[in-house]
Simulated scan of single mutants.
Amino acid sequence: MLTHHSLQFLRNLNQNNNREWFQANRQDYDKTKVEFENTCQEILNGISQFQPNLLNTTVKSCLLRINRDIRFSNDKSPYKKYIAAGFGPGGKSSGFVDYYLQIQPGESFLGGGMWSPTPTQLTNFRQEIDYNPQHLKGIIENSLFRDYYKEIHGEKVKKMPKGYPIDHPEIELLKYKQLFFVHRYSDEDVTHPNFANEVIEGCKILKPYLDYINEIFFGQTD
């Protein structure tokens, strides 16, 4: 499980984001990494029970590197302020729309959904809404789903997408060019012994929406 040690390490890293400090505190990072790996292994084991295509996925393949890619960034801080994992078949680089978990003091969350679709994928998404809006609405307006994922996140276009009338009954859904969901966790949630099970339940609730998106984008569920 994750402990207050891991959250404190991330707080300290945020205040001392340089290689000299990181190397001097490498043991604390290693402990944090082990705690996160163990937590992610529990989560992966749980998700695999309702998503069998994750059964052969290793936890190491799900973990994101803590090092930042600073080549094209004005911010030259070498490390991320968080630790994170992507849970998909084969790991974080599955190519599907998968579950994403980020741990950061005061800002931890589980999320997933349509983040950066290609133009073709976005067109297909809008066509599906136009053809059968009740499929998507039946998922995201379900009471269990809405209790856990309380709002839709994502950018919208200001004008109606080309090819759709301005008085379309699903105008607001059609305007989305991103559509994803997030559930946030407090630091107390993250360090609770039941945290892994809480994330597993969150993934189970999110799964119908991810299946919906993966079917539209790739012709198959994740």
Rank of each mutant, 00 (worst) to 15 (best):
I205V: 14
K137E: 12
N25Y: 06
Y29I: 10
K158N: 10
R11I: 08
R11K: 15
K207Q: 14
D222N: 15
T118N: 09
Q178C: 01
Q102R: 08
D75R: 10
N124H: 14
N214M: 11
S108K: 03
K204C: 06
C203D: 04
Y131V: 12
E172T: 11
E35Y: 09
V182Y: 01
P133K: 11
R71S: 06
S61L: 00
M1I: 11
R68W: 01
Q121V: 10
I70P: 06
L144C: 03
K204A: 08
G202I: 06
L179W: 00
Q104T: 06
E198G: 00
K207Y: 10
L179H: 04
L136V: 11
I47E: 03
D167T: 09
S108P: 03
Q8V: 11
W21K: 08
L54D: 04
R65C: 01
L55W: 01
H192R: 04
N194M: 08
R11N: 14
D98T: 10
E141D: 14
T32C: 15
F72V: 09
V97I: 06
P133F: 12
W115Y: 15
I83P: 04
Q41H: 13
V190S: 01
F22Y: 13
H135R: 14
L63H: 00
I129D: 10
V97L: 03
N124A: 15
P193Y: 05
K150S: 11
L122A: 01
V97P: 00
Y100H: 04
I213T: 06
E151G: 03
F125L: 12
N214Q: 08
L206C: 07
S6G: 13
T32E: 08
L101D: 02
L55K: 15
F125R: 07
T123V: 00
S48I: 05
K175F: 01
Q27G: 05
D69G: 05
D30E: 15
L173I: 04
N197H: 11
Y79F: 15
